[in-house]
Amino acid sequence: MSAVTEHTDHGTEAHDHADHGSHPTTLTFVKVAIILAVITALETSTYWWVEDAHTVAMITLFICMAIKFVMILLWFMHLKWDSKLFSLMFYIGVGLAIAVYIVALMTFHFFA
């Protein structure tokens, strides 16, 4: 073939090929799914007690959301095993979105 050969000389970039060999088993994914389901149940339960303990419910909800978000990314979307460059691409988007929209909402005194 042409002079196009493997050249992985870019030290800063990751070359994880971890999922070539041993990618996680079905059991791992089932476990993750069960955990996600349990968290969703916990989240839903706040519906019935949110009036009694508003602050606790809010904190619970945000923590649960964050855990679910990260778990899906890391396990289901393989970021745990994949290249850091993929994570970077995605996290730039998430980070920018959170930053600019929170600032925009702040100018509307949304959090006041």
Partner: peptide, 15 residues
């Protein structure tokens, strides 16, 4: 980078 073009593009798109 040794990474697939398609996957890189997909992750960027999701970002």
């Amino acid at each position: 980078t040794g990474l697939s073009n398609n996957k890189l593009a997909m992750w960027l798109f999701l970002g």
